[in-house]
Each structure stands twice: as structure tokens, then as C-alpha cells.
Nucleic acid binder design. Structure first.
Length: 450
RNA sequence: GUGAUUGUAGCUCAGUUGGUUAGAGCGCUGGUUUGUGGUACCAGAGGUCGCGGGUUCGAGUCCCGUCUAUCACCCCA
């Protein structure tokens, strides 16, 4: 035994069969519903030009990008006196792993604007990578299930996505969720109220922690950031909003003004949601929600489980001008993304996975001796031709071992075709669960197994 | 990137105030004679005590560093 023990790269995981089956169950559910809403799949490369990726996620996002070292002698032509990594980086790395699926989509849309049919509806289920420090429910490699409508500014897009989120979650058996909704305009108004028009980011990031750290800490933090007592006074109403969105509405419209664009937009969206047949949507207006500030320009939403501190199940919003940087202007879009791993955790914690999942072998053919192997192989082929999942034990070992193997693999049937059986023209079929066995003809066995 | 905790057989862990050949349970392999699995019994394999330094006559046990995992912050799915 030589060599070091292999380990997994930080933040990555292997998925064994049971997990793969469960993950596929989620993928299939989402894919089916996405398609039902008229969205078509898109897949893009894992690697993109670093220039495509950088600058889209803010300073922090750039740091979380995995960069790929240039091939060959990557030091060739590099100024050896360069010590600043920001100037060195582009010289030694020109490629990177995608950080999300939205930016690759924008790149794709800009590149194919003449071929695409707008409004462009696409979904994309692929892994993304972030050099984040792993934590509970956070990995460096994880799957996003994106859905986007590009080239349509109607608020109907938002509404459709919200309804679809409901359908996916309910289909998976998740009931106790809330979609938090906010609007970039509301955040702006709050910043103005707080006398921090040019400090919107700082205000939002702090407000967003409300449900996590509580009112007092948020106020304290805002004080620390230089917000005046008078300004904070004007923002106090946010902290004592009623729980239901119906009750929140009048308070928010009063404080922010009826003509506030964000409020009007959200009202329209909710009207559409009702028109789409969702009587009691699990949607809450949450003026403290602040996500994706680096590119969302309109609505913002996020799905969370009620009464838990689990991370969000997904998030999205409207973005204007994301394609600008790729040379395509005036395009608005709305997108949303489910985090596969988050959904997985919830389904697991709530025991919502269907009990029977995956497919194990139905019948194991025992391998008794070289002579019997021949006719056993014949039976094996017949079984497979009849679409029965079958395998032969690939070595002549004691029957006891073969039965143990079947037991461990949870294979329900073991077929034994030894000399006795061959001479009598039968097959002994053992039912591992009842521990009984019976002799059948090949035909009868096929019936028994199908 | 910041802070905290952690690391002993495949897994879950013991391991006394630093002292001889590091243990248990589960699992694993083989056996309890001929073609029969969940139990029982018997036997066996498997550890450079994360890695690297240091203190000491002597370190799994103390100190420093490093890596890993976990948790929180930042940010986010």
C-alpha cells in the first residue's frame, strides 16, 4: 500500500446511487414543470473567458471565481516584477469556471440575438462553482436550476415565475415556504427615508439581516454606519410590520407613497398571480429583502422555509441591461433559480422523498460451475431481452457468498440453474424476502418477474 | 478573506496528572465440511494516533505551524 489517501476537494461531494436517484427526482420534477410553462433547455460550457465573468458579481464575486491557469508555460511573457495580483492575474489566467448561470445566459443571448425568438424562455440546470468557504448547505460546486424570460418587460413574467415556484415546491411536497418579494425601488425609497440616498447598499445589506439578528442589532449596526437617530426613526415602521402581506400593504403604501413604482409593480404582479389561478399565494412583501444588488434592477425574490434558519431555496429578480456589457442594449429579463442542494436538504429533513426510488437489479443469476455458467448465460440474455434487470454473479464462488451478495444488494430474486435444474429443464427461483423458492420454466419465471 | 472548534482502525468513539508491544463496538475477510442469505459461535486482517517542527530521558497525550472538516461573519443557492 503506497501513496497518500485520496480526499475530496474542499466543498465538493461524491454522490452514490441513492443520492443520485434522489437528485434526479428533483431535477425531473423541476424540468417537467419548467417545460410545462413553455421554457426550453439551454446548456453552456463549464468554462468561460474570465473577461466574461469578472465584474458581474461585484468585487467579492470576482474573488470567488475559480480561475484556470493558462496552458503551457503560463509565466512566459509575464513581467517578473509584477507583484500586484490584479495585474498579474489576467496575464496568467484567461479562463474561469462559471459562477452562476445568468451571466452565461446573457453572453449567449447577446451572441445569438439574431437567431433567438424573443421573448426568449429558457431553463438551465447545471453546476456552478464558487471559491467560497464551505458551510452548512454551501458548497463550492453546486447545481442551480435557472429559469429566465429575456426580452419581456411585462410583470406577467414575474407572476408566471412566482406561480411556477409554487407548483414546483408543492409538487415536491414542500408546503411551509414563503416567497419574499421586494423591489429595488422600495429599497431606494427606504434609503431616501433614511437619509442615505447614496448609501443604499450599506442600508440594504444591514436591513437584510433583520430576520437573522433581530431589530436591535440592525439598529445598532446602522448607527455604527452613521445613520442619524432621526433617520432611523423614520425607518422604524419596517421593524414592526404585520406578518401577513395583506396587512402590510396599507402600511407600506402609506410610508412609501401610493405612486411608488415598486409598490405599484408588486401590486400588479400579485393581481396577475391571482389571475393565474393562485388563490392564496405564499408571497410576502418584505421591504428588507436585499439580494443580487449588483444586477437586479426591479423585483427581487427569494424562497425561504418558514420557521427555520435554513438557507434560501432559491432566488431571483428582474434585471435590465445585463446584456449591455455584451453589446446588446435595451433588454430586460426576469430570472429565478432553485438551489438543488437546498431543496435536497429540505426534502431529506422533512422526509419527503418517495420511499421507492431508483432501480436495483431484479434478479441475480447464481454462478455455480463452468458448465452451468453456459446455460445460465443463456437465461441471462433472455431475461434482459425481456427488459428485466438481471445480472450474473461474475465468478464461481460458494452459493452462500452469492446469496449474501444478493442480500446486501437488496436484489429480490436469485435464480439458480445448476446441473439438476438443467437436467430437469427448470430454473429454481428464490424469493429473498420470503426465503422461499420454487421451480419454474423459463417462461414462467419471466412472468413471475415482470 | 476574518474568527472559533476539530482531526486516534472503513464507521462511531475510549485512551487516566506525558511512561513499556494504542483499545472497544459496529463493519470487513475467512471458517463452523458437499448447492442456500438476516441469528449464533470461532478465527483473522486493518492504525507512520491528519501532516511538519519543537519541549522532554520519553508525546496520541504539552507548545508552534500547516492542512482538513465543521460552525459563524462577509456574501450567497
Amino acid at each position: 500500500m503506497q501513496g497518500k489517501k485520496p480526499t475530496l476537494l474542499k466543498g465538493t461531494r461524491d454522490f452514490a446511487a441513492p443520492q443520485v436517484f434522489r437528485r434526479n427526482y428533483i431535477f425531473d420534477t423541476i424540468r417537467h414543470i419548467y417545460q410545462k410553462y413553455g421554457f426550453l433547455p439551454l446548456e453552456t460550457p463549464v468554462l468561460e473567458h474570465l473577461t466574461t465573468l469578472t465584474g458581474k458579481y461585484g468585487e467579492e464575486g470576482d474573488q470567488l471565481l475559480f480561475k484556470i491557469l493558462n496552458s503551457g508555460d503560463f509565466l512566459e511573457g509575464v513581467d517578473s516584477h509584477t507583484k500586484d495580483y490584479k495585474t498579474l492575474l489576467p496575464q496568467i489566467a484567461a479562463k474561469g469556471l462559471r459562477y452562476d448561470l445568468t451571466v452565461p445566459l446573457m453572453r449567449y443571448v447577446a451572441m445569438n440575438k439574431d437567431k433567438l425568438i424573443f421573448p426568449f424562455r429558457r431553463y438551465q440546470i447545471q453546476p456552478v462553482w464558487r471559491a467560497d468557504r464551505p458551510q452548512k448547505g454551501r458548497y463550492r460546486e453546486f447545481y442551480q436550476c435557472d429559469i429566465d424570460m429575456v426580452g419581456a418587460s411585462s410583470l406577467l413574467c414575474e407572476a408566471e415565475i412566482l406561480v411556477m415556484i409554487h407548483e414546483v415546491l408543492l409538487q415536491l411536497g414542500i408546503k411551509d415556504f414563503t416567497i419574499h418579494m421586494n423591489h429595488r425601488d422600495v429599497l431606494k425609497s427606504l434609503a431616501t427615508l433614511g437619509g442615505a440616498t447614496n448609501q443604499e447598499g450599506a442600508l440594504c445589506v444591514t436591513l437584510d439581516k433583520l430576520d437573522k439578528v433581530g431589530k436591535d442589532k440592525v439598529l445598532e449596526e446602522l448607527k455604527g454606519k452613521g445613520f442619524s437617530p432621526a433617520a432611523l426613526e423614520r425607518l422604524l415602521f419596517i421593524f414592526d410590520l404585520p406578518a401577513t402581506q395583506v396587512d402590510r400593504w396599507p402600511i407600506l403604501t402609506k410610508q412609501l407613497g401610493l405612486t411608488q413604482k415598486g409598490m405599484q409593480d408588486m401590486q400588479k404582479i400579485l393581481d396577475y398571480v391571482h389571475a393565474l389561478g393562485l388563490e392564496e399565494p405564499s408571497i410576502t412583501l418584505d421591504p428588507t429583502l436585499a439580494r443580487g444588488l449588483s444586477y437586479y434592477t426591479g423585483t427581487i425574490f427569494e424562497v425561504k422555509m418558514k420557521h427555520t434558519n435554513w438557507g434560501s431555496l432559491g432566488g431571483g429578480g428582474r434585471y435590465d441591461g445585463l446584456t449591455d456589457i455584451f453589446g446588446l442594449t435595451g433588454v430586460s429579463g426576469v430570472g429565478f433559480s432553485f438551489g438543488l442542494d437546498r431543496l435536497y436538504s429540505v426534502l431529506e429533513a422533512l422526509d419527503l422523498f418517495p420511499s421507492s426510488m431508483g432501480s436495483t437489479t431484479q434478479v441475480l443469476l447464481a454462478n455455480l460451475d463452468p458448465a452451468s455458467e453456459k446455460w445460465t448465460l443463456k437465461a441471462l440474455t433472455t431475461l434482459r431481452t425481456n427488459d428485466i434487470r438481471a445480472e450474473i454473479y461474475p465468478a464461481v464462488v460458494k452459493l452462500k457468498k452469492q446469496l449474501q451478495y444478493a442480500h446486501k444488494r437488496q436484489i429480490p430474486f436469485v435464480a439458480i440453474i445448476g446441473e439438476e435444474e438443467h437436467a430437469a429443464g427448470v430454473i429454481t427461483l428464490k424469493d429473498m424476502r420470503t426465503r422461499t423458492q420454487q421451480q419454474y420454466s423459463l417462461e414462467q419465471m419471466l412472468q413471475e418477474l415482470s
